[in-house]
Simulated assay, not measured.
Amino acid sequence: MVTVTRVRDVEQLCTLAALDMIELIATLQGPGGGLHGDGIARVVLTGGGAGIGTLEQLAHFDRCAAAQEDSFPALRIDWSRVHVFFGDERNVPTDHPESNEGQAREALLEHVNIPEGHIHGFGLGHGISMDEAAESYAAALDRWAPKGFDLHLLGMGGEGHINSLFPHTKAVKETKDKVLAVRDSPKPPAERVTLTLPAVNSASQVWFLVAGQEKAEAAGHILAGSDFLQWPAAGARGTAETVLYLADDAAGPAGGTPAANS
């Protein structure tokens, strides 16, 4: 089952998702909390307008909480007890404008007190091959998130792609490996490394961040549970909860619940 959280626009989406993340992560950080029972939250970040906008809001709320902590303490994430992962990465160095990790660092990670060793990037663009990066990242998942993730954020393309899992590609058909090198992405750049559906579906919580009229049809297929080979987003489900944050412009004709069209 997918829970739909309707919002007015992408700005409201980013604000609400960030507030919900703060509440969720703070809860996970309680004694014995989280999927691993160690009070450490394991979170997969996503790029795109809504994904990066949500990270910017998290940074904003963290600054606000810090500024008022003496006079009026607010709920706040303990970033020393968060491990961050990425759903996919383009084959570029971190300082490249198209790097998901680079964008996440600029939007959030450089502004909060998260240990560098808790940021798990793919390491691309520094002399490592994509196959080596995929193998290394799979090992990192086994070490730092052996039971899966507490939260996986997902953006989505108009054709329903998530991470670098595109319709009818080898990557979306993967049923065993959690990380794959992709050399034929239909969306440039062609070369990427991605988490697969087995990795996504190891998450307790999967949250879609969806805004834009061009995404209405794909959003309907998420709700309908359509064939994930044609609509990859339809194959992503959290083990505890799946939430679709849906802006009005992505909610189909006349603002109604999106309808899945065959």
Rank of each mutant, 00 (worst) to 15 (best):
L55H: 06
L124W: 03
D131W: 02
E174S: 10
G225W: 05
R143C: 02
L35T: 14
E106R: 12
N113T: 05
Q57W: 06
P232D: 09
G117F: 04
A171C: 02
A181R: 14
E159D: 15
A145T: 07
S202G: 09
D227T: 06
V243R: 15
Y137N: 13
D142M: 02
P189H: 04
T27H: 04
H221T: 11
D184C: 11
T242M: 13
E132K: 01
G225A: 11
Q57C: 09
K173C: 10
G238S: 11
S164N: 11
H120Y: 00
G157M: 02
R237V: 12
K178D: 02
D62H: 15
E174T: 14
I22E: 07
N163I: 00
L16E: 13
L209Y: 09
F208T: 10
T242S: 14
E98M: 15
S129A: 03
G238D: 15
R192H: 05
E106S: 11
L28C: 08
L109E: 14
Q29K: 06
A134G: 04
H36W: 07
T54Y: 06
D88L: 03
A250C: 11
E23F: 08
H118V: 06
R81H: 12
H161N: 11
A50K: 09
I128W: 00
A145I: 07
G255R: 00
P93F: 06
M130N: 01
Q57H: 09
A240C: 08
D70H: 12
V10A: 15
D248N: 12
A236C: 03
P93V: 08
M156Q: 11
W207Y: 13
E56G: 15
A67T: 09
I40N: 14
R63K: 14
D184T: 14
E110M: 08
P189I: 04
F86T: 09
A171G: 04
F86P: 12
G117Q: 10
I162L: 03
V44P: 03
G121F: 10
L151P: 00
T54F: 06
P93R: 03
V210R: 05
A211C: 10
G123M: 10
S129G: 14
E217G: 10
A134Q: 09
F149A: 03
R183E: 11
A181T: 05
F61N: 04
I119V: 15
I25T: 13
A260T: 08
H221S: 06
V10P: 03
G49A: 10
S80H: 13
G212N: 06
G155E: 08
A203F: 06
L209T: 08
A203Y: 11
L16W: 04
A250R: 05
L195T: 09
P258D: 07
H118S: 15
L209H: 09
E101Q: 14
Y137H: 13
A104G: 07
T196S: 13
D9W: 05
A181N: 07
V44D: 01
K178G: 01
S185I: 03
G155W: 04
I128F: 02
T27C: 01
D249G: 14
E116M: 05
G235K: 00
T54A: 05
G255N: 05
L24I: 06
G34W: 07
L55F: 05
D78M: 05
R143E: 13
P31C: 04
R76C: 08
V2A: 06
S185R: 02
G220M: 01
S164Y: 02
D95P: 01
L244R: 10
P188R: 13
S204E: 15
H111A: 06
